[in-house]
Every structure is written in C-alpha cells, then in structure tokens.
Design a protein around this nucleic acid. Sequence first.
DNA 1: TAGTTTTCTTGCCAAATGGCAAGTATTCCT
DNA 2: AGGAATACTTGCCATTTGGCAAGAAAACTA
Lengths: 190, 190
Amino acid sequence: MKLIDFINTNNQLSDIEKELIVNNVEVRTIANKDYFVKSGTRSNEIGFVTSGIFRYFFYDGDGNEVTSHFMAEDELVGSITSFFEFTPSAGSIQAVTDCELIIINRDSWDLFCSEIPQWETSIQKKINEVILRKANFQRSLINSDAKNAYLKFMNTFPSLAQRVPLNYIASYLGITPFSLSRIRKAIASL
Amino acid sequence: MKLIDFINTNNQLSDIEKELIVNNVEVRTIANKDYFVKSGTRSNEIGFVTSGIFRYFFYDGDGNEVTSHFMAEDELVGSITSFFEFTPSAGSIQAVTDCELIIINRDSWDLFCSEIPQWETSIQKKINEVILRKANFQRSLINSDAKNAYLKFMNTFPSLAQRVPLNYIASYLGITPFSLSRIRKAIASL
DNA sequence: TAGTTTTCTTGCCAAATGGCAAGTATTCCT
DNA sequence: AGGAATACTTGCCATTTGGCAAGAAAACTA
C-alpha cells in the first residue's frame, strides 16, 4: 500500500503496525469536481492521494476565487489547520480529476498516534516539508513576471501543468487565464 | 524583560524559571546594516528583538537580491532552518535600523528545553504562527497588483512602512522601487 | 559643515498584463 | 451522435508596470 511506503521511509514499521494501518483506513473515490472538504466545515479526515489531483481554494477579500494549492499522487490532502485545530476550514478542497484516496479519519489518526511511535513525528515532518516548499515557491512567484512564473510552475510541478485546467493554474500563479493562454502559446512556439 | 512576557503568555513560568532565562541570555546591539546571520554560515543563536528591525534576504536564481521577511520589535529573529537543522543559512539577516536584541545561544536553548517544560512547545507555536501569517500574506501578494500589495503591506505592517527603506519594501512586494515610489505618491495625494 | 555616497523621485518610453467580446474547441450528458 | 455547457483562444485596446537616465533629497563621513 502506497500509504505505508509514504510513512515507512526508514523501514521502521513492524508488520503488526502495517496491518493496523491497513485495517483502519478507508479507500474512497471522489469524482472530478466533487469536494473532499467544504469551506466552513470542520474536517475530520486526512487523505493520501493514490490517483488524481485536488486543489485547495478560497475566496479573497474581493470575492475572487483563489486556488492556492494542488495535491496530487503520493501526497497528503486535507485542511491541515482544520483537522489539527478542530476549526472550520477556511477553504475548500475539490477534485480536479477523478481521484482515489486513502482516508484516515480522526479515530484512526488517534489510534496510530498511540500505537505507532514514529507516526506523528513522521507525518509532521512530511507536512512541514510541504509547507516549506510551498512557501518558497510562492515567494519565488512574487518576484516573477507571468512567463517566468509559469516556467517555474512547469519545472516544479511538471505533471500538473498538463492535467490541471488552465483556469486554476492561472489563479495559482496570480495571472489571468488569458495571459496564461498566450504564454503557453509563446512557449509552444519556441 | 520583554522576552519573558513573550513566552509567558499563560503565566506558567515560575520565578526560578524566569531567573534561569534572565541569567542565560545576552543583550546585544547590532548597528544598522550589520549582520545577525550571514548566508552560508551555521547559525547557533536565536534572537528576540527589543528594538529595531531586521530583514532576511537571499539571492534568487538570477542573482537578484530578494528581501523576503522583516523582523521587528517583540518578534523572534533568526534563521530558523539553520538553527534547528544545523544547516548553513540560505540567506542573510541584516539590521535595517540600529537594533537591540536578546540572544539565546544553543547552549541556553538546550538548557531551557530541558529545564522549562513549556519552553519548546511555546516557542514552536509562536514560530508556526509567524510562518503561517507570512505564508498567507505572501499568498495574498500573488494575486495583487502593485498598489494593492502596498496597501496590504501598510495595513498588515503599519509600523514597517515608514521605517524600512523603500528599496527593501519594494523587493518584499515584488515590485520595482520606481513603482513603489509612484504608488506612495499616488496614495499620499488622496 | 562641506563633500560624498546612498536613497528616492520623476519623466519618458517600451513592454507586459488585464479587460472584454467574440469565436473556437473540448467535454459532458443523455 | 447531438446539443448544451464548459474551457480555451484570440484580437483589440486600456492600464499598469518596468527600464533607464537624470536629478533631488537625505544620510553619512570626515
């Protein structure tokens, strides 16, 4: 199971622990455009994406929808703040393709925390890595013009560029879909 | 001592613990333009700013200097990654005004961790808050035009707008100093 | 305080991006 | 397959921002 590999980077999990995990997670499919988390609700699940792509989005002060994060295969998906701090999620998480994921609900989470010593720190580490990468990437967008932003996006997330609707990528990069369309055209003709 | 107030938000510190802290920190002044952390070196100190402002900056792929963070009064200053992961700092931290800070070196840090139960989690929480605020603010810059970016900056960091050289603010916002100068003029004439 | 350096402002123009309308392509659904 | 909805492209023009040069203002230094 992919989730096991994800956590078991140091091969520290016993067979019993692995079984515990397998027996306490749920495999779920979510169709394109359906939601995994809806804004304003408390999220009691963390997912691990086995196929497909999700996006996190929210509405800014002016009511514009902003896509601020993508979560694809072999990554965790979830409203981290909502899950860990028991607060309503500020944004929504929506499937951008048909998706399959492994669900860890709060009970299982607590179970794993108590039964598997390295569980919590291992996951926390992964989450921190993601947040840091995300923050660094966003930082780099701030000083980029539209074209460079897209080039960076393609380099950093090559698999997303083709699979995510242009709309969402444009929002993620802070440019208009029109500009992105033109930029793609310009890049294609090199 | 300001540092004590910073940590002791829940009034859990005993007098002995407070004394331990006071006796194991160092007060230091750093003149405008001097460095607290130099890029490429391992940082073994965390500071708490009692007066003045610092900036964190690095060089992007094209060799341009980018100011990505400011640290002012009553905030922690330091290359967090470098300190906690014993790695060379990717960027530098430089005083933007004459500064005074309280230094916690690694020995004191370890001492506080072992002697003061709430030390580590309390600080970690503060750091996480800062990182999250920073990430959210940067996110909001991505979808802002130059003028709105500056307006947000003024709202979010009102005290910095006047005290930090325009140059650094422009870099932080991802716009040119020329643009920022014009934006300021436009705002002033409202 | 006079001179030097640094920082900031301004004018001019070029380039990049946005806004919008219309049209094309693609996907979705039955 | 046919029609409807959604997503994307393109042209036109307005606006914003960048780049650069020159000069003004402010800060620093001796």
